[in-house]
Write a protein that binds this DNA or RNA. Sequence first.
DNA 1: GATGGGGGTTCCCATCATGGGAAGGTCAAG
DNA 2: CTTGACCTTCCCATGATGGGAACCCCCATC
Lengths: 130, 130
Amino acid sequence: MKIGEAARASGVTAKMIRHYEAIGLLPPASRSEANYRDYGEAEIHALRFIRRARDLGFSLHEIASLLALWGDRHRASAEVKRLALAHVEALEAKARDLSAMAATLRHLAAHCHGDSRPDCPILDELARSN
Amino acid sequence: MKIGEAARASGVTAKMIRHYEAIGLLPPASRSEANYRDYGEAEIHALRFIRRARDLGFSLHEIASLLALWGDRHRASAEVKRLALAHVEALEAKARDLSAMAATLRHLAAHCHGDSRPDCPILDELARSN
DNA sequence: GATGGGGGTTCCCATCATGGGAAGGTCAAG
DNA sequence: CTTGACCTTCCCATGATGGGAACCCCCATC
């Protein structure tokens, strides 16, 4: 399979597949006579694995660890779980941060008339001098 | 005030102050004889404004708009409110995305024994072949 | 007066994940 | 044999931030 097909089959763009190889997340693909990258089922599986992990918000660095664990038949699931839960904590912390920002701003906006007059509690808050 | 003092007074690092000037978010600062940037109260206010907007998750691009509105005595607060609420929507959407990822992953982790055995529903899900 | 330290200045590079695009090679079908 | 779709590598850009080098400036202390 050439890179375009692999991209369609895995949901990872060809650009990203090359990138993942370049940074060592994936081993160098074997090449055809025309120097085209050639992918088999195993590679497609790995690419899908990466895409799903990305969809769950894992960084490429974390994904490298996950791939290593995936490929290790003697892994302890405890290690995977630890990694996953640490990531969950980070996701939840980020979500809380964003929600807090949203709530603060929504509150400010609720007090803003939102008409043609210039008075605006939102700007007042941002420009507050203390 | 030199840039270091301005940084301390505003909570924006000197590095970032220079950056904001470089990208045109702030007008070029006036310079001392030694070519040092010189800041007055007005500039400190603007820097604090920027920092607060950043704390609320606004992008520098959005902040440019907010600064323009802030400086426009004839602005309509409707415009500010519109911007703020659009940003709130984006924040909430992002927060929802992160929460969904966290929930999915927490669910998977809950089914993972997390012991020394290799079986792991988390990896199974990532490696799912359909 | 020399020196040292703690500012400041510019400029380049790195992060993280991704995309755009140029210049050129390869292959199938018309 | 050309055309078009694909592939290759390489460079640049994003957004916000930080690190660090090389150099300049000023003030206090020996």
